[in-house]
Write a protein that binds this DNA or RNA. Structure first.
Lengths: 243, 243
DNA sequence: CGTGAGCTTGACTTGTTTCAACCAACGTGG
DNA sequence: CCACGTTGGTTGAAACAAGTCAAGCTCACG
C-alpha cells in the first residue's frame, strides 16, 4: 500500500490511527460526526489477514465498517461454490451504506490484502444523520454511488463480453486508485489474483488468464509481481467500451 | 390487469384514483405523507402507452414516480443497441428510491403494458422524510430491498445459466404478483415479450425462446395469449436453484 | 391486403467452460 | 538444508452453452 500523501492533506488533522493517508475522508468525517453524539461510543479498529473472510453472509453487525488500509471485496456465495464479487473495496470506502440501516449483511466480505478497518457504532451514525445535514448528504452520496455501481455491474455481466468486462474492471480500479493518489504514473499495486477477477467478471479463472495474456500480447497492459501497468490506455478503453 | 381486491382493503380508504386495487400501499402512504407538508403541491397522475418509453437515461425528474397500474421496466441501453433490464416494476412499486435524492435518472423507464403512474414532488417527500419517522422507515425498506434485488441480479447474470435465470425470473414475478393478489391460482397475466425476458436475463431472444420451449415440453409451464401458468412449481424451483 | 411485431425452428459459428497437465514461487516441517 | 504441499499462473484440446443468421409462421392492425 504505497499510498502517497494526498495533495489536500496539508493543514487538516489526521483522524484515524489506521488511516495513514488522508485520502480517507470518509473515516475522518464519520469519526468527527459521531464524536459529539449522545449515543456515541468509540469506534473500534480491527485488522484482518489477506485471504481471510472478515464476515459472512447473514451475520449480524452492530457496527458499520470503513476500510482504512488494504483491499477487500464484497461477495455472494452459492451453496455449490460459485461466487460473485459485487465490489472491490479500497481504502476510504464503506463496505456498504445499506449497513447503516440494515444490521444483517446480505453479502460476505473478505480481505484481499491485509486489511485494517474501523467499525462505527450504528446507533451513533443514525443519531448523527438526524442532526448533521452534511453527514446525511455524504451518506446519500454513498447510497446513490452504490446504486450506480450495481447498475453498471448488471449491464457488464449481462451484456458485455469477457474482454470488455476485464478491461473496464482494470480501468475502473485505476480511476479509483488515481483519485486516492495511489497510482504511480500508469502503474498501480495490483493485489488481485486471477480468481478475484474471475469472480468479479463472472468468468472462469482459465478464461481470465487467457484474456489477460491476450492483453499482454497486445501491448495493452503489463502485470508482474502484484503490480499492473497500463501500457496503452486508449487501446484498453477501446476494448472496454466496445459500444 | 385483473387485480383482485386485496384482503386487507376492507375499512381502509382508497387514496389514488389511478390505483383501483388496494395493493398499492406505497402510493397511499406517500399521498398521505406529503399532504400535510408546507412545500406540498399535488401529485400528478400520468399514463403511458404500452411499449413507449416513459423517460430516458439522463433526463431530469423533479417528481418521484410510483407505478399504479400495469407493468413497466427500468433499463440501461448501450449505444450499440444492447440493453439490460434492471427490474420489472409492478403496481405499487416506486421506480427507484434513489430518485428521492438524485434528480437525474441513470436508467430509462419504459411501459410494458399501458401504465398509469403517480408523480410525487421530490421536495415534499424530502420534507416529509424529516418529520415522519414511519415514512422514513418505509423508504429505508425500499432502499434495502432495491439493493438486495441488485445483488441478486448480479449473481444471476454472473454465475447462473440461462435456464436458471429464466426460471427464477418467472418464480420471482409469480411471488410478487401473489403478494398483490394478482395470481389466479397458478396462473398470472404475463405481458412480457420474449425480448423483455432476454434483456432482463442477459440472453438473446432466440435462446430465450428455446429455453421457454424446453420448459413447456418439460411440463413446467404453459404460456398462451399473455398469460403464464406454472404447471410444476417444484420442478421449476429445482431448475431455478441449481445450487 | 399488406406490413410489422412476435414466435418458432434449424444449421452453423463463436465464446466460454471444463478437464488436464505442467511450472514457478513460497512456506513449512523434518 | 531439503522434501513437500499449497497457491497461483500458463497452455492446449475437447465439450458445451449461447449467439448469429435465416426462413417461415401467426396475428393484429391500419
Amino acid at each position: 500500500m504505497t499510498a502517497q500523501p494526498h495533495p489536500e492533506r496539508a493543514g487538516v488533522p489526521p483522524s484515524c490511527a489506521a488511516c495513514p493517508a488522508f485520502h480517507n475522508r470518509l473515516c475522518y468525517a464519520l469519526t468527527q460526526a459521531i464524536a459529539g453524539e449522545p449515543s456515541a461510543n468509540e469506534p473500534h479498529d480491527h485488522s484482518a489477514l489477506a485471504r481471510r473472510s472478515i464476515w459472512r453472509e447473514g451475520e449480524r453487525l452492530d457496527r458499520v465498517p470503513v476500510i482504512c488500509q488494504g483491499w477487500a471485496a464484497t461477495a455472494i456465495a452459492m451453496s455449490d461454490g460459485r461466487r460473485q464479487i459485487l465490489s472491490f473495496l479500497l481504502p476510504g470506502e464503506m463496505v456498504s451504506a445499506v449497513l447503516i440501516h440494515q444490521p444483517v449483511s446480505q453479502c460476505s466480505v473478505e480481505a484481499i490484502t491485509d486489511v485494517r478497518f474501523r467499525m462505527f457504532p450504528r446507533a451513533a451514525i443514525k443519531d448523527a444523520l438526524l442532526r448533521q445535514p452534511d453527514l446525511a448528504a455524504t451518506v446519500t452520496k454513498l447510497w446513490t454511488d452504490e446504486a450506480a455501481r450495481a447498475d453498471r455491474l448488471a449491464i457488464d455481466l449481462g451484456r458485455r463480453g469477457a474482454a470488455e468486462r476485464i478491461a473496464s474492471l482494470i480501468l475502473n480500479l485505476a480511476d479509483r486508485l488515481q483519485s486516492r493518489g495511489m497510482m504511480q504514473g500508469q502503474t498501480m499495486d495490483f493485489p488481485l489474483r486471477q480468481h478475484h477477477i474471475a469472480d468479479a467478471a463472472g468468468l472462469t479463472v482459465v478464461h481470465v488468464g487467457n484474456v489477460l495474456a491476450e492483453f499482454r500480447r497486445g501491448g495493452l497492459i503489463d502485470i508482474n509481481e502484484r503490480s499492473l501497468t497500463i501500457r496503452d490506455a486508449s487501446g484498453l478503453r477501446r476494448v472496454a467500451d466496445a459500444d
